[in-house]
Every structure is written in C-alpha cells, then in structure tokens.
Design a protein around this nucleic acid. Structure first.
Length: 914
RNA sequence: GGAGGCAUAGCUCAGCUGGUUCAGAGCAUCUGCCUUACAAGCAGAGGGUCCGCGGUUCGAACCCGUGUGCCUCCACCA
C-alpha cells in the first residue's frame, strides 16, 4: 500500500479528475435517453468577464444541483455559454481602441466590429475556463454565445415576429440617455443614486418690463436655456395674477408663457416650476399637454448644442455649464439663493454616467399588450407553478409585473444584433425583415393590425394618453413611402438590440428552439428545471424569460428559481473590483482547493441572503477536506483479517456500532433530502458535514477502531468502506474532487467509472440501538476527567445504578473503549464514598477517591437543583391549570406529567449527592 | 414618496400549523491535551430579558398592534 500524505493536497487531484471527467464525457447529455431530463441553463456571464466571487457562489450552487441530479440517474444537462453584453463589451472595445489611439468615430461599422470580434476571440470565454477550475460540470459541447449566428438569427426572427404581432413599435419618447455610452437604456438599466446637489433659486423677470420677477427653484440651472414656459398651480393665490403673462428666460430674453397645471406642487421650492420639455420627463408631458415647443440644447455627448443660443455655453459639457451658468447668474443678479439639496439622479448601470432624459426615436416592446396575451407570466409565479426560492421574491415580481412599462429595446451601439428594420433614401421607415427584400415583402403581407399601427401615425400626431404612467406614448412611424422602392435603395437601421433582447430567449435558443421548434433537444430538455441567479436581474432577465417561454413555447422556461445573495465582505460591503475587497477566486482555489472554496461559499449562504464572505470559511472547507482525507488514511491503514480469527465479542460489538451508524445515516439522509427539497443547500451541506465529522469520524470510527497494532475484522472493514462510500456520494455534489479521489482509491474500480455517475444514496431501513444514555455516560466521564485534571490515560472502574440496565449493559464495551473504563458494575445502591454523575434519571458512580473542590461542586449542584425546582414549578402550574388540561392535547399533558416525574427524580439524585 | 423584508449566542444563521428539543447549529472564545488518522487535530466548557412596549391566549421567539433600528426593491417632485 502506498503511503498517503498526511494532509490533503487538492492540487494533486483536481486537474487530473476534471480532465478525466471531460475525457469520459460524463457531463454531456443527449436527448435520446429514457432518463428523466434535468436541465439548467447557465446565466451567461459577459463574454469579456472575469470570474468573481458572485460567479463562484452562483455556479457552485448550479453545480451542486446538477451533480446531484446526475447521480440520481437523471439526464442532467447544464448548458454553459456567454453573453455578448453589448454596452459593456462595446465600452471595453472602445477603451482598448482609445489606448491604441483609435477613435471609434473614425471607424466604419465594419471595421469596428472587426476589432470587437478580435477582442472577443482573445478575451472572450476566459471565464468559462475558470469555471472548469471550480469543477463546474457543464456540458461544454453545448457551449453557446448569444451573438453566434444561430442565436442572432433567433433574435431577429423574434423581433420580426413581435412586429408582425403588433407588439413592437417605434416611438418618439423620452428615453434614458447615457451620454457616455451614447445610447438609450431601458428603465432597468438605470440606477438611482442619492447625491448631494444644490437647489438654485433663479429670478425670471416679467416680460412687460415692470421689473417684477418670479423665483424658480431648480437643480439644473443649465437647462434654463431650454425653458419654454413657467408653470404654477392653478389654485395658488400667489401666482394667480401672472398666469397667462410672459416672462423672460434669463440671459436669452426669450419670452415664455406662465401656465397653470395641477401637476405643480405648491409647497415644493417656490411653488413655481420651469418647463423644459426636452430635458425632463414630466416637463415633456406638460409640453405635450399645452402644445409647447421643444428646445433640445444637448447633443448625444451631453454637451450643449447651438440651440442653447448662448455662445458662452455652446460646445461645453452639461456639468461645466451648470457651474459656469450659476456663477454667471449670480453675477447678473439673477440668483436669489443657493441651497444644499439631496436628490436622486439616475445613472447608467454600465458606464455610471448620469442619465439624461432625452427625446428620441426608439423601438419598444408593448409590454401591456404582451402581458394581456400571456397572463400566465404572473399567474405561474403566484401559483408556484414556477417556484421562487426564497418565496418572498414573489412580491417584488408581482409589483414589477403590475406596473410594467414598455421596454426600450434599441441601443445606439454597433456590438449586438442589428435591428432588422429598413428605411428608404429619405429615411422613412419601410418595413421589417431579415433582408431589404424581405422587408418589402413583409410590409405587403403584414397583418392588418400591424399595418394599421405602422400607418396610423405620422409625426406630430398626438394620441390620448392611455395611462398616466405613460405620458407620451405618441407612437409614430414616419409615413411609409407609398411606392415601393427597390431593395437596393433601402438601408438597415443603424441601431442594435438590447442585450437582454437576446438573453430572454436563452432557455429556448440554446436548444435551437426558434430555428427548429420541434427538434429533439428542445423537446427533451425544455422546460428546464432550475434557474440560479442574482435577485438584481429578476426584471432584466427572469421575468422576461418567463414571458418568452409562454409566448414562443406556450410553456414555462423553468420550474424553480433560486435567488442567490450578494457576496459581501465582513463589513457588509459589496465585493467589487473598485473597492479591491474581493479576493481573486482562482487564488483562493489555488490556496485552499476548489472543494474548500465551494464548501466555504455554501456553508453559510441561505437562499436569498447575502453571504458575508471571509477567508476563514474557505479555511473551514479546506479543514473539512483534510479531515475526510485523514479518516480515509485511517481506514486504509487497517490490516484486515477474516472474521473467524477474532473473538466473537469483537464481532458483536462492531456490529452494534455499525448498526448504530446505519441508523444515524438513515436519519441524516432523510433530513438532508428534506433540505434539498426546500433548496436549503447550506443546511443540506451542514447535515453532511456533521454526519461525516461528528457521527462518522468522532463516534463511529472511534467505536470500531482496533487498538493500536491489532488487525480489523473483514466484515466490519467492508461495512466501514460501504459507509464511507455512501458518505462520499452524499458529499460529492458539494466537494466533487476529493470525493472522486477517495471513491476511486477505496476499492478497485472498473475503467471509465466515476463517482459522478454513481447512484446517489437513498435511505435504507436500519435498526439502530439507542445509545443516547451510553453517549451521555461517556461524555460525563470525559467531562469529569477534564474538570478534575484526570488524564484520559488513567483507566478506572465505574458502577451504574440504572432504571433500565438494558440501555447500558450490552454496550459496556463502548463505555470502556471510549471513556477508558476498566470495568463496569451494575448496582442497586450507591457505593460508599463514590462520586455521582447523573445521567438522565440514572446514576453513574466513580469509585475513585479524588481530591475534589467540594465547595465549587456543591454550588454547581445546588444551582442545578434550584433550576430544576423552578422548572417543576412551571410544569406544576401547567398541570394544575384546569384550562390547560382541558385544552391541550392529551399526549402533551401526559408528556408534562412525565417531565414532572423525571425532574422530581433528578432532584432527588442531586440532593443525595450533596 | 411607495412596497417588501429583517431584528434569536461575539459572528452567520435554524427554529414547520403557538406547548419540552427545559431556545439549537457552525464558526469564534475559553480550559486541558503533540492520546499512533488528522494540532488544518482531540476532549470538554462557557455564552442568549429570542430588539423595546402593549395585546390575544391556560400558554408567545412564534399571532396582532405599536415604537425603534437596519436592509432591499420600485419611483419623474423641480
């Protein structure tokens, strides 16, 4: 037998076994199987991403679920892949180009995309290799990319389909504009942050030259150059006189009207609002309502354009102008005062830039209509057809669905799926189609509804507001050209689609469910089983996948959604690159082993709770691996001989120990399965941890361990190996590497075998002896040794006075072995001068004359008596309460009576002891 | 501004439909041990007004109300 290292060295095994698993194709699944499918699609990480702690947690959980399912004999399929992440990736490419001295604006679309693909080929997919280090059992043959040709085709088809169904429209609307990314964003991509800013009180002088003025409070003085009106509340007495009159915009001397509308809050600021339709969502609504002009003074970069009219500011950044104009206003005596003010500003999720509300023509999905077609999207979640873990997430989901808004899906970027809309030479919309030809044909064939929708709107036509939340639905398409142009004269929309417009198809598109809706893969693997993701993308992704599932498959995309928490550091700060508080996952793996890291991440991360990561947890994981390793070393070291060479007592004793452990194993299996069912993975892992460390190592192995130098009998050895094997299988989903290594070396295995595909342990009947009194006796004796400074090496005799001897006598060998007792006597009265240890309502006597701190002992016992007497009192109170006896369940009353009797007996024992 | 959630040991969390599992676990702490598998270990111990205050009930960590403190999500008050 080869010597095993004293400590477990993960580096020696992890690479080897991962390679083996790959070679043997254990992770690959085909639909031609009688096995029940079990599918997970990975939340595709950004193609340019690098593994961070969040990924580690998320993918460890997925791997646990998949590995367990695989061992349960299911056709387990975990589909990996990456997301093209249009904004994030484009931003990175732009930055890379800038470093090389190339400006994006100097490149053609084609050239830029060439660079982007180059970048993707070079850095894309690093993260997938990193996942392998973690042990992720993905079906790598199925790796997909959201921008690969087939998936892009699906996206385009879906766009066309939605357009034909009348669910997509193009509209001039206020959008969230990211001046850094130079693109529109959906509401979900905007993060509101509280910032400290200033509230400027600015004087607007009456245009009649009277010298009178009104004061307006604003946080954005630069937008006064885009003002088109002043608005007050109609019932505000202070301003009644000026409604209908005109004021001058500071500096510009442009005359603008004073209007009145209920929207204005009389109590806020000065009760007087400046109206800037081009740069504020509410102002835009007001502008629409009162037919005000729109003056847009900002360009796509957030710089002031010529429409600002004031030379001092044109061509300058909005924030620079804000500072400058404030100074200029003060100088011109236009400022009454400036106050510190806290308010919320929207920022871009990707670039961090402050969002600018901007009027622009974008493509939208009509979500209200979409939801009307697919009511199951909400119903399925509320009825637990799709289960959320934790369930409290259902509230958040419902709230979003109930207040759903149209989805802005066009992005002014190049990296992504180009919108399949076509325009004629004068820029007028012609139609939608994969090609110009198709767009023309499609236009002719477009169903009546879509055609009507496309035709009904001409610029500047207003429609009644169907919903107060959508002040400006103003759906419009430029009037299509009456005569059909030739395809050559058409040009395609310059914009691409929102990344999430491809991600929402992921569970379907990875199985080519759009290209070929009846193919074997999708029929077998869809709907998928579990989705593991972060709560912050519930709206971006989870909700929309559910929508897509019902719209195109008529079926839910998954049955369970497990929301992970955010990984934070000990101070509860979110782990992030910028804070530098996130350890490099690969370093951690190198240091503690993948198994240790997996265990460290999972041991304290209940679903939906943030996990406070600390390296000590990973250390705990490593220690656990080491513990298992050493248990294995022990078992391996035994010299095994046939049973007939042993005394029968030894065989009998060992059988008792084995039976006891079998019972513990049974109970643990049931408990652990229960935890899995509730997706309480941390608790399931804890169950395995305690079963292995406490029950198996600390108790069972010590029970059967031969004295040093003695051999082990064969049947017990085999039984122990069988237990060990069960434990390894139980642990395998959590710690795949060490379990494989040990499983492979604990017995001779067939070529091509693996614990990965071994059957997951199922509960088996076991008759387990009740050793609770025996264990308590052992613990009491150990405790005594500890407190009295008695070496464990000194053996002594004990006497037991028990109500029921059968709870002790058959197990004498255990007490002797584990507490180092030389002999056990059963007595009816207390031996003279013996020390008493209470064990339940029984008494254990130690016949040693020891130097004992009598006072301290006595105090302790007296305290215990006081406690028990108090306890008796409360039990008595219960029992003498007629209402309790009448109302409580009879077995409960009986229990109370038993408790009373036990307590009385214990008190008696303790009294005697004093 | 709206909605939701949380508060139990030093830390992270269990605690199902109210009753004994005299409120549990892991980690951390403390005390003894280098006992031939493991010091990344062994044996043991201590540690809690279940956030405050009311109420319902025979009985409350659990149900209701209220206060306080934290967190998350949503949101266009200049």
């Amino acid at each position: 037998m080869t010597e095993l290292a004293k400590t477990y060295t993960p580096q020696a095994f992890e690479g080897k076994w991962y390679q083996y698993w790959m070679d043997q194709k254990f992770f690959h699944a085909e639909p031609n199987s009688d096995k029940e499918p079990f599918t997970i699609v990975i939340p595709p990480p950004n193609v340019t991403g690098v593994l961070h702690m969040g990924h580690m947690l998320n993918n460890t959980i997925q791997d646990v679920l998949v590995r367990k399912a695989r061992m349960e004999g299911k056709n387990a399929c975990w589909v990996p892949g990456t997301d093209h992440a249009s904004i994030a990736t484009e931003a990175k490419v732009v930055q890379m180009l800038r470093e090389r001295g190339i400006k994006k604006s100097d490149l053609s679309r084609e050239d830029f995309l060439k660079y982007a693909w180059e970048w993707k080929e070079k850095y894309g997919g690093i993260i997938l290799d990193q996942l392998k280090k973690l042990g992720a059992s993905c079906d790598w043959d199925r790796t997909r990319f959201t921008m690969e040709p087939k998936l892009s085709e699906a996206v385009i088809e879906v766009f066309i389909d939605l357009y034909n169904k009348g669910l997509i429209y193009r509209g001039l609307r206020m959008v969230n504009w990211d001046p850094l990314g130079k693109t529109a964003l959906s509401d979900e991509e905007v993060i509101h942050k509280e910032v400290q800013s200033k509230l400027y009180y600015i004087k607007y002088f009456m245009a009649d030259g009277s010298g009178e003025f009104v004061t307006i409070a604003t946080t954005r003085p630069e937008t006064i150059l885009a003002d088109v009106a002043i608005c007050v509340n109609p019932s505000d007495e202070r301003f009644k006189a000026i409604v209908g009159k005109k004021v001058w915009v500071p500096f510009l001397k442009r005359e603008i009207p004073v209007i009145a509308d209920d929207y204005v809050d009389m109590d806020f600021g000065t009760g007087c609002l400046k109206v800037t339709p081009a740069h504020d969502v509410n102002d835009y609504a007001l502008g629409q309502k009162y037919g005000l002009p729109v003056i847009d003074i900002l360009d796509e970069n957030g710089f002031l354009n010529a429409d600002a009219k004031d030379e001092r500011y044109i061509g300058k950044d909005r924030f620079a102008v804000r500072k400058q104009i404030a100074i200029d206003l003060v100088e011109a005596a236009h400022i009454l005062k400036i106050e510190e003010y806290k308010n919320q500003v929207g920022t871009s999720e990707r670039t961090g830039a402050v969002i600018e509300p901007r009027l622009s023509l974008q493509w939208w999905v009509d979500m209200k209509k979409f939801m009307e077609r697919n009511p199951q999207v909400l119903e399925a979640v509320m009825s637990d057809e799709i289960q959320f873990h934790p369930a409290k997430m259902k509230n958040t989901y419902k709230h979003w669905i109930d207040n759903i808004k149209d989805w802005c899906i066009s992005r002014q970027l190049w990296w992504g799926q180009r919108i399949p809309a076509w325009y004629n030479e004068s820029g007028n919309f012609v139609g939608v189609g994969k090609t110009a030809e198709e767009a023309l044909i499609n236009r002719a064939n477009t169903n009546d509804f879509a055609k009507a929708k496309a035709d009904e709107t001409t610029p500047n036509t207003q429609h009644p507001t169907p919903n107060a939340q959508h002040p400006t639905p103003n759906t419009q398409h430029p009037t299509p050209n009456a005569q059909h142009p030739s395809p050559n004269a058409l040009h395609q929309d310059e914009d691409v689609l929102d990344t999430w417009f491809s991600s929402w198809l992921w569970p379907i598109s990875v199985f080519d469910g759009f290209e070929n809706p009846e193919n074997e893969d999708i029929k077998h693997f869809y709907p998928t089983n579990d989705l593991v993701t972060a709560p912050e993308i519930m709206f971006f992704w989870v909700a929309r996948m559910i929508m897509a599932g019902y719209e195109w498959r008529g079926e839910k995309p998954f049955s369970n959604v497990y929301y992970t928490g955010i990984v934070r550091d000990k101070q509860r700060r979110k782990m992030s690159k910028s804070l530098g508080n996130s350890p490099d996952p690969l370093d951690l793996i190198a240091q503690f082993g993948a198994d240790g890291v997996r265990m460290g991440m999972l041991i304290c991360s209940p679903a939906g709770n943030d996990i406070l990561f600390d390296e000590s947890q990973v250390e705990q994981g490593r220690n656990f691996a080491n513990k298992i390793w050493n248990a294995f070393r022990l078992v391996k070291s035994w010299e095994v001989k046939p049973d007939n060479g042993f005394k029968p007592e030894i065989i009998i004793s060992n059988n008792i120990s084995a039976n006891w452990f079998a019972g513990r194993l049974l109970q643990a299996l049931i408990d652990i399965e229960d935890k899995y069912k509730g997706y309480k993975l941390s608790e399931a892992l804890m169950g395995v941890y305690k079963l292995i460390w406490d029950d198996f190592c600390a108790w069972y192995l010590e029970m059967v361990k031969p004295v040093y130098g003695e051999p082990m009998n064969e049947s017990t050895f085999n039984q122990t190996i069988a237990f060990f094997e069960e434990l390894m299988k139980l642990l395998h989903p959590f710690m795949p590497f060490i379990t494989e290594e040990i499983w492979q070396s604990m017995a001779t295995r067939k070529a091509g075998s693996s614990i990965c595909i071994e059957p997951y342990p199922i509960p088996r009947n076991a008759q387990s002896p009740d050793l609770s009194r025996v264990f308590e006796t052992i613990q009491q004796i150990r405790n005594l040794r500890n407190s009295k400074g008695l070496s464990p090496k000194i053996a002594f005799e004990i006497s037991i006075k028990a109500n029921d001897k059968s709870l002790y006598e058959p197990y004498n060998f255990l007490i002797q072995k584990l507490a180092n007792i030389s002999a056990i006597h059963y007595v009816l009265v207390q031996p003279d001068g013996a020390i008493l240890l209470p064990v339940g309502t029984d008494e254990v006597f130690i016949g040693l004359s020891l130097k004992i701190d009598l006072v301290a002992d006595r105090e302790k016992i007296e305290q215990e008596i006081i406690y028990l007497e108090g306890f008796m009192k409360s039990v008595n109170a219960k029992l003498s309460n007629a209402k309790f006896v009448a109302n409580a369940k009879p077995e409960l009353v009986e229990k109370e009576r038993q408790k009373k009797a036990d307590a009385a007996q214990k008190i008696e024992i303790l009294r005697k002891n004093i």
